[in-house]
């Protein structure tokens, strides 16, 4: 290649292409002279848009929610100007009808997270270590397809399975295991089945990618050194998959605490979750917004603290076994 061929933009010499014409045009040159004057300025321009976006749209709504949770009334009316108060937070701690769904949500989400982990771990292990590489995608796809369908459609499918005239009851009656239909719907059972149906993928993906990364040579080396299957699992698989366990559990827990349509459609009066309580303040009169916002803040802070502590604990455990 001769030096004369190294033009700024490609294209034939006599007829420059779109980019050549653009970079040769006067307004573009004037613009880039200002925008790209120094690496420092280029960097500042590159960064300013993300920073503004993230502060205004990612952080802003959360801050405004906290702000509203401290106001006496919102939206502000013509003759009642809101002032700051802590009474909505007090309401949560003094009224037991709110504490109960709150605790139920936390216990329910924790139990479901653990259940999902126990069910999904063997599935992820089987996929990552016992299915041939070239067939893993196919096996994974079977699990992925249901997860592309939305929350509502999946809940509806669950309702058809579990209803009094549903497929499960029909099958049980046909087998002679029960005389009358068992009322699965609107119970903790139907709600759990529905939530696991929604969240399992978020457990599967982190676990699968953590397990898939473990080099098979480690197991061969351990076996050569005389480690049995249980020892290999305890000393290799488990410690190296802790990262996947950690992020999978975090995701599933956070999603379970925030589901709304699932408890409304699959749950009953005895399984009211905190998300339904929060939502209630937004459906009825508008002046209840601050209470709903305060309750949402309590839920958010609790969920983030719990998952944060859990992540720290898992990181600590993973660090200890590596030594």
């Amino acid at each position: 290649m001769t030096l004369s061929n190294t033009r700024p933009a490609s294209g034939p010499a006599d007829r420059p292409g779109f980019w050549g014409r653009l970079s040769g045009s006067g307004p573009y040159a004037a613009l880039t002279d200002v925008l790209l004057a120094s690496p420092r300025r280029q960097f500042a321009i590159l960064l300013i848009v993300p920073v503004i976006w993230v502060l205004l749209t990612h952080l802003g709504p959360i801050l405004q929610m906290i702000n509203v949770s401290l106001l006496t009334n919102y939206p502000p009316g013509p003759n009642n100007v809101p002032t700051y108060t802590l009474e909505h937070y007090g309401k949560f701690f003094t009224d037991s009808i709110f504490i109960q769904p709150f605790l139920r949500t936390l216990i329910f989400s924790s139990v479901l997270t653990l259940t999902t982990l126990i069910i999904i771990y063997p599935v992820a292990y089987f996929l990552a270590r016992h299915v041939r590489r070239d067939r893993q995608m196919m096996f994974l796809m079977l699990l992925l397809i249901p997860f592309w369908v939305g929350e509502i459609v999946r809940i509806f499918a669950m309702m058809i399975l579990l209803g009094n005239n549903g497929a499960l009851n029909l099958a049980l009656q046909w087998l002679g295991l029960t005389e009358r239909p068992i009322p699965f719907m609107y119970t903790g059972f139907s709600l759990s089945a529905g939530i696991i149906y929604l969240t399992a993928l978020y457990m599967l993906m982190p676990l699968y990618s953590a397990l898939e990364k473990i080099p098979p040579s480690l197991f061969e080396a351990a076996a050569d050194l005389g480690a049995g299957p249980w020892t290999r699992f305890r000393r290799i698989t488990l410690p190296l998959s802790l990262e996947g366990v950690s992020s999978g559990c975090t995701l599933v827990f956070l999603i379970s605490t925030g589901v709304y349509a699932t408890p409304v459609l699959l749950g009953g009066p005895s399984t009211t979750l905190f998300s339904e309580v929060i939502a209630g303040f937004f459906h009825v009169a508008g002046d209840q917004w601050p209470v709903g916002a305060a309750f949402a803040v309590i839920m958010l802070v609790t969920a983030l603290l719990l998952t944060g502590a859990f992540t720290k604990l898992m990181a600590h455990l993973a660090g200890r076994v590596k030594q």
Partner: peptide, 12 residues
Amino acid sequence: IPGVISAIAFRI
């Protein structure tokens, strides 16, 4: 952010 909390934060 859990779903219902994110929804009401956006609503506000």
